[in-house]
Design a protein around this nucleic acid. Sequence first.
DNA 1: CAGATTACTAACCGTGCGGTAGAAAATACA
DNA 2: TGTATTTTCTACCGCACGGTTAGTAATCTG
Lengths: 213, 213
Amino acid sequence: MQPNDASTAQVRPTKPLTITERARRAQLIGVTIDLVARHGYPGTSLARIAEAAGISKAAVLYHFPSKDAVVRTAYASVLESLTEYVGAEVAARSGAPAVEAYVRSLVAYLRDHPDHTRMIVEALREETGIGDTPNAPSRREAVAGLIDAARAAGDYRPGVDPQTTAVIVNGAIDAIVSERLADPDFDSRSAAEELVGMLRRSLGTAPRDTDNP
Amino acid sequence: MQPNDASTAQVRPTKPLTITERARRAQLIGVTIDLVARHGYPGTSLARIAEAAGISKAAVLYHFPSKDAVVRTAYASVLESLTEYVGAEVAARSGAPAVEAYVRSLVAYLRDHPDHTRMIVEALREETGIGDTPNAPSRREAVAGLIDAARAAGDYRPGVDPQTTAVIVNGAIDAIVSERLADPDFDSRSAAEELVGMLRRSLGTAPRDTDNP
DNA sequence: CAGATTACTAACCGTGCGGTAGAAAATACA
DNA sequence: TGTATTTTCTACCGCACGGTTAGTAATCTG
């Protein structure tokens, strides 16, 4: 019999996973993150995963219902780790500082975890890309929420459009992260600071130069 | 005999392509752009290209040395069209207006040519992504040059770092374009304007709020 | 120790891939 | 017209893919 199918939609009384089961799953997730980071999504075949884990293909499919489930689980684990870190940083602040913490912590995390970064980039392009996927607006919405809160707190000008600004900010962050990935000499930390500075100058209330002379 | 191998590194006295040859090439490039836009790079197989063009696989490979050459050629044609448009817009201006023309024209072009946009996105992720490709720094350099010129012209503050700013600006543009691709209701034109406004406030010389009270 | 369950392997299957071979149409040219 | 060349087709090759099957170790449990 096949073990628990913990990919999605778990019902309550799931039998506690065996020690072996948990260890294998963790190992498979680990090697998968590694493989995706090094060879990309398409280059990560079932055979490669099995080989990297030192077991047969069938053994991999014994622990997961499909190759895709392995990759999705690995991605979920990476994403959870990231959101946990960034979430904590953001939650500890409010207003403009929360937005700035978002920028800084996201760039910092991805600088310190290039494998995770590559995995996320690969996964993103799956879900974005071609299919008319509604394209998880969650990230945009989250950032838009932060910006909206900062505006409500008086840190940002009333004219700031949270949605549009969120798109721009996320894009800028992604570009900084990508650049760092391509060129390890790129100073992503100071780039993040530069972005923070730009946001202060362009969104902040302090010097109104156009609509209120 | 196989016809001219015009993929790359063409030597001078290339025999003028046949009418048939040119027509087929154009057609193949066309359907390839379409296929890549609709089904992505991996979903664009030789058989699909052939089927879409109404000929056999072998016929495709008669006109191009490999499937990859077809796709690369299609990509090159798209890229040429884009750079021609944006290049003209930018070249007609100088200083900050050139930077702003870059932002506006790039967003506008990609809004008007979603197929081209999807193709470029797909191609980008090939060259970026995994392999330690030096990742064509040409775009960043080009934009950095524009920013540097704007700074030299006195439009931008001396403290502005062209390289970092270029990365941020390109990232913001890409995000706007992607958002528009995912959500046709997204007003990418006004988003571009918002970005231009942000750049003016954060890079412009007019109101120095920090280093020169 | 015996039986059940867990964890695995080797071999295989069907599919789609890029690409090739050789012959046959279509076309150009004398 | 006949011949040469350009263009195309059908059929095939080898390969890597995700996944399945049947059997077998290994481990737990009474």
